[in-house]
């Protein structure tokens, strides 16, 4: 079984390239900004043009119409024959193999192979005007770019999990995530909310919603760490919004109304020194959420339920 798998890999990749060669058009990969030369230009000027542009050949164009192709080879031949200076039109290749923009790349690849030529001018199908030039390098570069883009898109698609809502067939879909929070562990505090944030982002939840959810979740996580022996954060994610449930088993809040007053805090000093415990946590949670419910019983524990919806769908909320 493993042998077979090893064989399948490379084959698939080759067929991918083959597929691309059939799908992609000459116009997708050709060079559009073409340096051209006029038929009356002298051969003696050709060397400088080729050198300056670092090319080994170029189309000869008269009034937008392609009339020939001249290459380094033609130039060397002219030099070797020690002939007098003359216009390029006398030495250029006039009978041309050309391609069209809408030709599939596979046709060009075949032509390169059959003729052994290094470049083909690409011309307008109707008027015969030069549209671009195609070299083997263009083909390779074009294929590599397409492979890279495809790979990148696949990577993004794999990383993003937002398509799960489209892929799964149901009348209602809810994804449930649970995070266990340890009490009194200040160093790890916020770690669960951080993981929740990454998860929500991958699921494609809107950034403004993500921000509100994780601010609430972080404050709630801080409360679990500071006041309890630990608890759990449950996040229910739906296409319509996110619901958070934060639950612990003690010590509970004696007076919820008081606890909801801004600035009211029972946090110890060490928590305040770290920038928390100023009696703003529950207020922050209330302000960022669209629905807020808290139930608590001293000695038993606290259950906080909050919901978040994308703004447009849910009117005006803090």
């Amino acid at each position: 079984m493993s042998d077979k798998e090893i064989e399948v890999g490379p084959e698939e990749r080759i067929s991918k390239t083959q597929e691309m060669v059939y799908e992609m058009k000459v116009g997708d990969v050709m060079t559009r900004k073409v340096i051209t030369v006029h038929p009356k230009t002298f051969m003696s000027e050709l060397r400088e043009i080729l050198r300056e542009n670092r090319i080994s050949g170029l189309p000869v164009v008269d009034d937008g119409r392609l009339v020939g192709l001249v290459s380094l080879e033609d130039f060397i031949k002219w030099l070797a024959d020690r002939q007098d200076d003359c216009p390029i039109e006398a030495k250029m290749t006039g009978k041309l193999e050309t391609l069209h923009e809408d030709d599939p790349l596979v046709l060009a690849v075949g032509k390169f192979e059959k003729t052994g030529l290094g470049r083909f001018p690409v011309v307008d199908r109707d008027r015969g005007r030069l549209a671009g030039i195609l070299t083997k390098g263009d083909v390779i570069e074009g294929l590599l770019k397409k492979l890279e883009i495809d790979y990148h898109q696949e990577e993004i698609y794999r990383h993003r999990a937002s398509h799960i809502f489209e892929d799964i067939e149901a009348d209602r879909t809810t994804l449930l995530f649970q995070y266990d929070v340890k009490g009194q562990d200040f160093k790890q505090a916020g770690g669960s909310s951080s993981r929740l944030k990454r998860t929500l982002k991958r699921l494609g939840v809107r950034p403004d919603v993500v921000r509100r959810v994780v601010i609430a979740s972080y404050e709630a996580e801080m409360n679990l760490v500071v006041f309890t022996e630990g608890g759990k954060i449950l996040a229910r994610v739906r296409p319509s919004g996110v619901l958070l449930e934060v639950e612990d088993s003690g010590p509970g809040i004696a007076d919820i109304q008081k606890a909801l007053q801004p600035g009211y805090s029972t946090a110890p000093d060490w928590v305040r020194e770290l920038g928390f415990g100023a009696g703003m946590g529950l207020n922050n949670i209330q302000n960022t959420s669209d629905r807020f419910d808290i139930q608590s019983e001293p000695g038993k524990g606290t259950l906080l339920k909050v919901a978040f919806y994308p703004k447009e769908e849910h009117g005006d909320t803090g």
Binding site: G190, S194, R211, V214, I215, G275
Partner: peptide
């Protein structure tokens, strides 16, 4: 470290 966590959120 909570300063960075806060920044992250």
């Amino acid at each position: 470290a909570q300063v960075v966590r806060t920044g992250e959120m």
